[in-house]
Amino acid sequence: MSIDGKGTPPVLEVDGVSVSFGSRNILHNVSFELRAGEFTGLIGSNGVGKTTLLRVILGLQPISTGSVRVLGAPLSKRSRALGYVPQKVLLDPDVPMRARDLVALGLDAHKFGFSRRSATEREKVEEILVAVDAESFADARIGSLSGGEQQRVLIAHALISSPKLLLLDEPLANLDPGSVQEVVALLHRVAKDHGVSILLSAHEMNALLPVMDRIVYVSNGRVASGTTDEVVRSDVLSELYGHHVDVIQLHGRIFVVAEPGTSAEDVPEHPRYQVD
Protein backbone atom coordinates (compact mmCIF):
# COMPACT_ATOMS: atom_id res chain seq x y z
CA MET A 1 0.00 0.00 0.00
CA SER A 2 1.42 3.36 -0.91
CA ILE A 3 1.21 6.10 1.64
CA ASP A 4 1.02 9.76 0.77
CA GLY A 5 2.69 12.62 2.64
CA LYS A 6 0.13 12.82 5.44
CA GLY A 7 0.26 9.10 6.17
CA THR A 8 -3.24 8.32 4.89
CA PRO A 9 -3.76 5.83 2.09
CA PRO A 10 -4.83 7.19 -1.31
CA VAL A 11 -8.58 7.34 -1.89
CA LEU A 12 -8.19 5.10 -4.89
CA GLU A 13 -5.41 2.88 -6.19
CA VAL A 14 -5.79 1.31 -9.60
CA ASP A 15 -2.98 -1.14 -10.14
CA GLY A 16 -2.22 -2.97 -13.38
CA VAL A 17 -5.83 -3.28 -14.46
CA SER A 18 -6.62 -4.91 -17.82
CA VAL A 19 -10.04 -5.38 -19.35
CA SER A 20 -11.00 -7.11 -22.56
CA PHE A 21 -14.31 -7.75 -24.28
CA GLY A 22 -13.99 -10.99 -26.19
CA SER A 23 -10.78 -10.60 -28.15
CA ARG A 24 -10.64 -6.79 -27.86
CA ASN A 25 -8.32 -5.39 -25.19
CA ILE A 26 -9.92 -2.18 -23.99
CA LEU A 27 -7.65 -1.38 -21.04
CA HIS A 28 -4.12 -2.68 -20.74
CA ASN A 29 -2.14 -2.59 -17.49
CA VAL A 30 -3.66 0.66 -16.27
CA SER A 31 -2.32 2.13 -13.00
CA PHE A 32 -2.90 5.41 -11.20
CA GLU A 33 -3.82 6.83 -7.81
CA LEU A 34 -6.18 9.47 -6.50
CA ARG A 35 -5.50 11.45 -3.32
CA ALA A 36 -7.97 12.77 -0.80
CA GLY A 37 -9.78 15.99 -1.68
CA GLU A 38 -8.46 16.19 -5.24
CA PHE A 39 -10.39 16.93 -8.39
CA THR A 40 -9.23 14.59 -11.14
CA GLY A 41 -10.21 14.64 -14.79
CA LEU A 42 -10.38 11.32 -16.66
CA ILE A 43 -9.77 12.51 -20.19
CA GLY A 44 -9.95 10.59 -23.45
CA SER A 45 -11.87 10.52 -26.70
CA ASN A 46 -15.09 8.57 -27.18
CA GLY A 47 -14.72 4.83 -26.95
CA VAL A 48 -11.29 4.69 -25.29
CA GLY A 49 -12.72 3.03 -22.19
CA LYS A 50 -13.50 5.80 -19.69
CA THR A 51 -16.88 4.36 -18.78
CA THR A 52 -15.34 0.90 -18.60
CA LEU A 53 -12.67 2.17 -16.22
CA LEU A 54 -15.25 3.84 -13.97
CA ARG A 55 -17.27 0.61 -13.93
CA VAL A 56 -14.12 -1.27 -12.95
CA ILE A 57 -13.64 1.09 -10.02
CA LEU A 58 -17.24 0.50 -8.98
CA GLY A 59 -16.81 -3.25 -9.19
CA LEU A 60 -19.41 -3.53 -11.95
CA GLN A 61 -16.94 -4.65 -14.59
CA PRO A 62 -14.85 -7.82 -14.22
CA ILE A 63 -11.13 -7.37 -14.85
CA SER A 64 -8.68 -9.88 -16.26
CA THR A 65 -5.65 -8.68 -14.28
CA GLY A 66 -4.78 -6.13 -11.64
CA SER A 67 -6.46 -4.78 -8.54
CA VAL A 68 -8.45 -1.82 -7.34
CA ARG A 69 -8.28 -0.55 -3.78
CA VAL A 70 -10.61 2.03 -2.32
CA LEU A 71 -9.37 3.75 0.87
CA GLY A 72 -6.71 1.11 1.12
CA ALA A 73 -9.16 -1.79 1.12
CA PRO A 74 -9.93 -4.14 -1.74
CA LEU A 75 -13.13 -3.55 -3.67
CA SER A 76 -16.34 -4.61 -2.04
CA LYS A 77 -19.64 -4.33 -3.83
CA ARG A 78 -21.39 -3.28 -0.65
CA SER A 79 -18.93 -0.47 0.03
CA ARG A 80 -20.60 2.88 0.42
CA ALA A 81 -17.42 4.89 -0.05
CA LEU A 82 -18.20 5.62 -3.70
CA GLY A 83 -20.85 7.78 -5.29
CA TYR A 84 -21.64 7.41 -8.97
CA VAL A 85 -23.39 9.57 -11.53
CA PRO A 86 -23.67 7.55 -14.76
CA GLN A 87 -23.55 9.10 -18.18
CA LYS A 88 -26.95 8.10 -19.44
CA VAL A 89 -29.84 7.92 -17.05
CA LEU A 90 -33.21 7.91 -18.71
CA LEU A 91 -35.54 9.29 -16.11
CA ASP A 92 -39.00 8.56 -17.36
CA PRO A 93 -41.46 11.46 -17.27
CA ASP A 94 -44.23 8.98 -16.47
CA VAL A 95 -42.74 7.95 -13.15
CA PRO A 96 -44.23 9.98 -10.34
CA MET A 97 -41.14 10.76 -8.30
CA ARG A 98 -40.05 14.11 -7.05
CA ALA A 99 -36.44 15.16 -7.10
CA ARG A 100 -36.32 14.91 -3.31
CA ASP A 101 -37.64 11.32 -3.40
CA LEU A 102 -34.74 10.26 -5.59
CA VAL A 103 -32.22 12.03 -3.37
CA ALA A 104 -33.68 10.34 -0.28
CA LEU A 105 -33.25 6.94 -1.92
CA GLY A 106 -29.53 7.63 -1.76
CA LEU A 107 -29.80 7.17 2.01
CA ASP A 108 -31.68 3.92 2.23
CA ALA A 109 -32.31 2.24 -1.13
CA HIS A 110 -29.90 -0.55 -0.26
CA LYS A 111 -32.01 -1.56 2.74
CA PHE A 112 -34.95 -3.92 2.81
CA GLY A 113 -37.65 -3.28 5.37
CA PHE A 114 -40.33 -0.95 6.61
CA SER A 115 -38.33 1.77 8.34
CA ARG A 116 -39.58 5.34 8.03
CA ARG A 117 -37.24 8.21 7.42
CA SER A 118 -36.28 10.19 10.51
CA ALA A 119 -36.42 13.98 10.85
CA THR A 120 -32.62 14.19 10.67
CA GLU A 121 -32.64 12.22 7.45
CA ARG A 122 -35.23 14.53 5.94
CA GLU A 123 -33.16 17.52 7.01
CA LYS A 124 -30.14 16.00 5.36
CA VAL A 125 -32.08 15.73 2.11
CA GLU A 126 -32.92 19.45 2.33
CA GLU A 127 -29.32 20.39 3.02
CA ILE A 128 -27.95 18.46 0.09
CA LEU A 129 -30.62 19.86 -2.24
CA VAL A 130 -29.54 23.36 -1.22
CA ALA A 131 -25.89 22.44 -1.70
CA VAL A 132 -26.47 21.55 -5.35
CA ASP A 133 -28.85 24.48 -5.99
CA ALA A 134 -31.77 22.14 -6.57
CA GLU A 135 -34.23 23.43 -3.97
CA SER A 136 -36.25 25.37 -6.54
CA PHE A 137 -37.28 22.17 -8.35
CA ALA A 138 -37.12 19.73 -5.45
CA ASP A 139 -40.84 18.97 -5.74
CA ALA A 140 -41.02 18.64 -9.52
CA ARG A 141 -41.22 15.26 -11.24
CA ILE A 142 -37.67 14.20 -12.04
CA GLY A 143 -38.66 13.11 -15.54
CA SER A 144 -39.89 16.60 -16.36
CA LEU A 145 -36.64 18.31 -15.36
CA SER A 146 -34.09 19.53 -17.87
CA GLY A 147 -30.86 17.60 -18.44
CA GLY A 148 -28.83 19.96 -16.28
CA GLU A 149 -31.40 19.88 -13.47
CA GLN A 150 -31.55 16.08 -13.51
CA GLN A 151 -27.80 15.99 -13.25
CA ARG A 152 -27.79 18.11 -10.11
CA VAL A 153 -30.40 15.82 -8.57
CA LEU A 154 -28.26 12.78 -9.41
CA ILE A 155 -25.21 14.47 -7.89
CA ALA A 156 -27.23 15.13 -4.75
CA HIS A 157 -28.31 11.49 -4.72
CA ALA A 158 -24.71 10.36 -4.94
CA LEU A 159 -23.48 12.82 -2.30
CA ILE A 160 -26.06 12.16 0.39
CA SER A 161 -24.45 8.96 1.59
CA SER A 162 -21.24 10.95 2.26
CA PRO A 163 -18.96 9.07 -0.12
CA LYS A 164 -15.22 9.63 -0.06
CA LEU A 165 -14.98 9.54 -3.83
CA LEU A 166 -17.51 10.74 -6.37
CA LEU A 167 -17.33 9.28 -9.88
CA LEU A 168 -19.04 11.21 -12.65
CA ASP A 169 -19.24 9.88 -16.20
CA GLU A 170 -19.27 12.61 -18.85
CA PRO A 171 -21.44 14.97 -16.81
CA LEU A 172 -20.63 17.84 -19.16
CA ALA A 173 -21.29 16.05 -22.42
CA ASN A 174 -24.80 17.28 -23.10
CA LEU A 175 -24.70 20.74 -21.58
CA ASP A 176 -24.46 24.12 -23.23
CA PRO A 177 -21.27 26.12 -22.44
CA GLY A 178 -22.94 28.20 -19.72
CA SER A 179 -24.21 25.18 -17.86
CA VAL A 180 -20.82 23.48 -18.17
CA GLN A 181 -19.25 26.35 -16.22
CA GLU A 182 -22.02 26.14 -13.62
CA VAL A 183 -21.69 22.40 -13.07
CA VAL A 184 -17.90 22.54 -12.90
CA ALA A 185 -18.06 25.36 -10.33
CA LEU A 186 -20.71 23.46 -8.37
CA LEU A 187 -18.63 20.29 -8.27
CA HIS A 188 -15.55 22.20 -7.25
CA ARG A 189 -17.45 23.84 -4.38
CA VAL A 190 -19.12 20.63 -3.26
CA ALA A 191 -15.80 18.78 -3.28
CA LYS A 192 -14.25 21.36 -0.99
CA ASP A 193 -17.28 21.68 1.33
CA HIS A 194 -17.91 17.97 1.70
CA GLY A 195 -14.32 16.82 1.59
CA VAL A 196 -14.98 14.44 -1.28
CA SER A 197 -12.55 13.56 -4.05
CA ILE A 198 -13.86 13.73 -7.58
CA LEU A 199 -13.05 11.65 -10.63
CA LEU A 200 -14.84 13.07 -13.63
CA SER A 201 -14.64 11.72 -17.16
CA ALA A 202 -14.76 14.00 -20.17
CA HIS A 203 -13.72 13.92 -23.80
CA GLU A 204 -12.77 17.60 -23.65
CA MET A 205 -10.47 18.94 -20.94
CA ASN A 206 -10.60 22.70 -21.41
CA ALA A 207 -13.63 23.36 -19.24
CA LEU A 208 -11.90 21.51 -16.40
CA LEU A 209 -8.53 23.28 -16.54
CA PRO A 210 -9.36 25.86 -13.82
CA VAL A 211 -10.40 23.26 -11.22
CA MET A 212 -8.51 20.11 -12.13
CA ASP A 213 -5.80 19.11 -9.64
CA ARG A 214 -4.71 16.09 -11.61
CA ILE A 215 -5.44 14.45 -14.91
CA VAL A 216 -5.70 10.81 -15.97
CA TYR A 217 -5.32 10.76 -19.73
CA VAL A 218 -6.55 7.62 -21.54
CA SER A 219 -5.61 6.49 -25.00
CA ASN A 220 -4.89 3.18 -26.70
CA GLY A 221 -5.93 1.31 -23.57
CA ARG A 222 -3.21 2.94 -21.48
CA VAL A 223 -3.16 5.98 -19.20
CA ALA A 224 -0.81 8.79 -18.25
CA SER A 225 -1.51 10.51 -14.94
CA GLY A 226 -0.18 13.48 -13.01
CA THR A 227 -0.79 17.21 -12.92
CA THR A 228 -1.92 18.84 -16.14
CA ASP A 229 1.53 20.28 -16.72
CA GLU A 230 3.13 16.87 -16.27
CA VAL A 231 0.78 15.00 -18.57
CA VAL A 232 -0.49 17.32 -21.27
CA ARG A 233 2.88 17.64 -23.02
CA SER A 234 3.86 16.69 -26.50
CA ASP A 235 6.36 14.00 -25.45
CA VAL A 236 4.08 12.30 -22.90
CA LEU A 237 1.02 12.26 -25.14
CA SER A 238 2.96 11.22 -28.24
CA GLU A 239 4.23 8.23 -26.30
CA LEU A 240 0.68 7.45 -25.17
CA TYR A 241 -0.88 7.80 -28.61
CA GLY A 242 1.92 5.92 -30.29
CA HIS A 243 2.46 8.66 -32.85
CA HIS A 244 3.48 12.29 -32.74
CA VAL A 245 0.99 14.83 -31.41
CA ASP A 246 1.49 18.50 -30.65
CA VAL A 247 0.10 20.27 -27.62
CA ILE A 248 -0.82 23.83 -28.41
CA GLN A 249 -1.78 26.43 -25.81
CA LEU A 250 -3.95 29.24 -27.11
CA HIS A 251 -5.83 31.86 -25.05
CA GLY A 252 -5.61 29.67 -21.94
CA ARG A 253 -6.99 26.68 -23.79
CA ILE A 254 -5.14 23.52 -24.69
CA PHE A 255 -5.43 21.68 -27.99
CA VAL A 256 -3.98 18.29 -28.79
CA VAL A 257 -3.32 18.12 -32.51
CA ALA A 258 -2.21 15.12 -34.53
CA GLU A 259 0.08 15.35 -37.53
CA PRO A 260 -1.77 15.21 -40.80
CA GLY A 261 -1.94 11.63 -42.00
CA THR A 262 -2.09 10.00 -38.61
CA SER A 263 -5.49 9.04 -37.38
CA ALA A 264 -6.97 12.21 -35.97
CA GLU A 265 -9.77 10.15 -34.54
CA ASP A 266 -7.75 9.28 -31.46
CA VAL A 267 -7.51 12.86 -30.42
CA PRO A 268 -10.14 14.03 -27.97
CA GLU A 269 -11.01 17.19 -29.85
CA HIS A 270 -12.36 15.11 -32.70
CA PRO A 271 -15.03 12.99 -31.09
CA ARG A 272 -16.03 10.01 -33.11
CA TYR A 273 -19.66 9.18 -33.66
CA GLN A 274 -20.37 6.22 -31.48
CA VAL A 275 -23.33 3.90 -31.79
CA ASP A 276 -24.56 2.58 -28.51
Binding site: L58, K77, G83, Y84, M97, H110
Partner: peptide, 15 residues
Protein backbone atom coordinates in the same frame (compact mmCIF):
# COMPACT_ATOMS: atom_id res chain seq x y z
CA UNK B 1 -37.65 1.53 -6.91
CA UNK B 2 -34.04 2.61 -7.34
CA UNK B 3 -33.23 -0.51 -9.37
CA UNK B 4 -36.16 0.26 -11.63
CA UNK B 5 -35.00 3.84 -12.20
CA UNK B 6 -31.38 2.94 -12.92
CA UNK B 7 -29.75 -0.39 -12.24
CA UNK B 8 -26.32 1.23 -12.62
CA UNK B 9 -26.89 3.73 -9.84
CA UNK B 10 -28.52 1.07 -7.71
CA UNK B 11 -25.64 -1.37 -7.96
CA UNK B 12 -23.10 1.37 -7.30
CA UNK B 13 -25.02 2.05 -4.10
CA UNK B 14 -24.73 -1.57 -3.04
CA UNK B 15 -28.22 -2.74 -4.01
Amino acid sequence: LLTSLSSEIASSQGV
